[in-house]
Write a protein that binds this DNA or RNA. Sequence first.
DNA 1: CAGCTCATGTGAACGGCTTTTACATGAGCC
DNA 2: GGCTCATGTAAAAGCCGTTCACATGAGCTG
Lengths: 250, 250
Amino acid sequence: MSWRKEQGRAERGYHHGNLKEALLQAALGLIAEKGAAGFTFADAARMAGVSAAAPYRHFRDRDELLSSIAQRGFEQFEARLTASWDDGRPDTITAFERVGKAYLAFAREEPAFYAAMFESGLPTDANPALMAAGERAFGVIRAAAERLAALTPPGTPRPPAMMMALHIWSMSHGVASLFSRGDGARRKLPMSPDELLEAEVLIYLRGLGFPTDRRPAAKGAEPPPVPPEASSGSGVPPGGTPGGPWGKPK
Amino acid sequence: MSWRKEQGRAERGYHHGNLKEALLQAALGLIAEKGAAGFTFADAARMAGVSAAAPYRHFRDRDELLSSIAQRGFEQFEARLTASWDDGRPDTITAFERVGKAYLAFAREEPAFYAAMFESGLPTDANPALMAAGERAFGVIRAAAERLAALTPPGTPRPPAMMMALHIWSMSHGVASLFSRGDGARRKLPMSPDELLEAEVLIYLRGLGFPTDRRPAAKGAEPPPVPPEASSGSGVPPGGTPGGPWGKPK
DNA sequence: CAGCTCATGTGAACGGCTTTTACATGAGCC
DNA sequence: GGCTCATGTAAAAGCCGTTCACATGAGCTG
């Protein structure tokens, strides 16, 4: 392998050899540490071992670095959502809830990306590529919502998939930014953010007429994940889950 | 009236006479203009017509000014939520939805306060008074949720009020920060943020077993806001609202 | 290999911000 | 009138973002 600049770091010559990537990595670490607002262009340069002016050879300004990170974040976000959706396997509702969990997991495990994506105060329309990346990530949720909407139990009006997607996104983002981040998560909750979101989504889906009991292992194919009672009696308790999606009420 | 410093502004002497308040107002305007991150201590001082060092006689540092604004914001927020809740009149569900709308209205109409409260990146535990103010504002939602939870239709398991409050908060905050702010609201939505949140909350409440049809004017007292069918047949469509809470699906 | 060229990095400098310090002012009180 | 202390100022240190003229050397060209 041609090793231009012996791999890691060590003695740099005049030229760094991989500054752009090094800056992105440094910035990522700094944002994780001190937030998107506290992050400093000069600090990133220092961390990469170059002068304060060097970054300007690779990014027009500080905002462009930030927006590059946000874009990268949306790409990884999309990948994780896609993976967790797994094309709706083993069944649509299970996969749908998994996407919600993946949303929170990303916010929790990649605070720097999440901050750059949603808390950096970047002008939304500044970078078209950034907006497109965000749109693709949202597309995963929308696609999942479409599959879910197509499964509305018979006798129930079918909700617009786009609306469902927006609802799910707002729930996920709301829980993530209020309760699931390093800093704002100080509030003492009666349950974990994951559980909170899961219950929220389950109640919401039930409100749309979906059966939301915890079937042990419905080995069958996708249709019917809708048990017959859904379209006959009450699509809502009593019965079904003992105590609803939030465990036993004491 | 003793007019110390002729009311508005005009020729100040050496002493301003009302600097603290002037700084708060100036900061509020600046945050509304340029965001919580873009706001500058020096700018506020300039706008108040004093030197850059003067603000330090009233605030330990920039963060304390910001956190004062956030605290004031939570107080006004609480007042507005309380007013819109109106002790649950004319009926609990109507009042509950009104609280959701008030949440969005505040985010839209007071972007500066909202930014200071939720987007300033202030360390949550820094200012106990700030945390307490936030807690009181949330208390309004929690109290409303408690009243609502007490009305769960018979035969339906009663959800924990705290959980409901957290759910409602996360929905409101999610919609507000994703779609209802000056900047991030660029996404073209199929419906207004208000409608989006209203539908979301209605579906959620339906998922908890609440009847969510639009009764024209149930003049009676609070009980029974729950029409008899709620506990007899399907607590969910078909029937009730023509098309669900999101209007006619075309 | 010599030499050219251009991407990449440097140092210095400008203006702005935050915060501190010593000093100035004057409002309120005796 | 004179004291005192809260309140404001000027100046300075240290940081940041950004720009510009200049330095370096990687890679091509012959």
